[in-house]
Amino acid sequence: MIRVEVVLAWPDRVERRALELAEGATVADALAAAALPGADDCPAVSVHGILARPAQVLHDQDRVELLRPLLADPKDNRRRRARGG
């Protein structure tokens, strides 16, 4: 058995699930087991901050993070700040 944590952070709250999964479990297995509300709206997943694919095998103490869609383009935000606006 391995222990992993699945996390989905919102601006005002954090949803998390601590799971025990079988050796060889994948990111997709962890997401299915966690069943976090709002997970279907997340376009990407990372493990310890590094983008991960659903078939990636997890290890003990991994942290699976659901990545929410960007609300604004970071390049546009930088340009706006550079213009002083």
Results as ranks from 00 to 15, higher is better:
residue 63 R to S: 08
residue 60 D to W: 00
residue 24 G to A: 09
residue 11 P to G: 01
residue 59 H to C: 12
residue 24 G to M: 07
residue 22 A to E: 14
residue 17 R to G: 03
residue 73 D to M: 02
residue 60 D to K: 02
residue 12 D to A: 10
residue 19 L to P: 00
residue 7 V to R: 00
residue 58 L to R: 04
residue 3 R to Q: 11
residue 61 Q to S: 14
residue 19 L to Q: 05
residue 55 A to L: 11
residue 59 H to R: 14
residue 65 E to V: 00
residue 71 L to C: 10
residue 38 G to M: 12
residue 74 P to Q: 06
residue 48 H to G: 14
residue 72 A to S: 15
residue 53 R to V: 05
residue 57 V to Y: 00
residue 17 R to H: 01
residue 39 A to P: 02
residue 35 A to L: 04
residue 31 L to I: 06
residue 36 L to P: 03
residue 50 I to W: 15
residue 43 P to M: 05
residue 50 I to Q: 15
residue 46 S to G: 10
residue 39 A to R: 06
residue 17 R to Q: 03
residue 76 D to G: 14
residue 29 D to N: 08
residue 44 A to L: 14
residue 35 A to R: 04
residue 85 G to P: 05
residue 16 R to P: 00
residue 19 L to E: 03
residue 10 W to A: 07
residue 60 D to R: 01
residue 42 C to T: 15
residue 23 E to Y: 05
residue 5 E to A: 04
residue 37 P to A: 12
residue 67 L to I: 12
residue 81 R to D: 15
residue 17 R to S: 00
residue 57 V to S: 04
residue 51 L to P: 04
residue 46 S to T: 09
residue 10 W to T: 10
residue 24 G to L: 07
residue 44 A to I: 11
residue 12 D to V: 10
residue 37 P to E: 11
residue 76 D to M: 11
residue 50 I to T: 12
residue 42 C to N: 13
residue 71 L to N: 09
residue 20 E to D: 11
residue 16 R to A: 06
residue 31 L to F: 03
residue 35 A to W: 08
residue 31 L to E: 01
residue 14 V to Q: 08
residue 43 P to G: 08
residue 8 L to E: 03
residue 36 L to D: 02
residue 45 V to S: 13
residue 53 R to G: 02
residue 18 A to T: 06
residue 75 K to Q: 15
residue 26 T to H: 03
residue 46 S to I: 01
residue 70 L to R: 07
residue 11 P to H: 00
residue 48 H to D: 14
residue 7 V to L: 01
residue 82 A to R: 08
residue 2 I to M: 08
residue 17 R to T: 00
residue 62 D to Y: 04
residue 42 C to H: 08
residue 11 P to A: 01
residue 12 D to H: 03
residue 1 M to K: 12
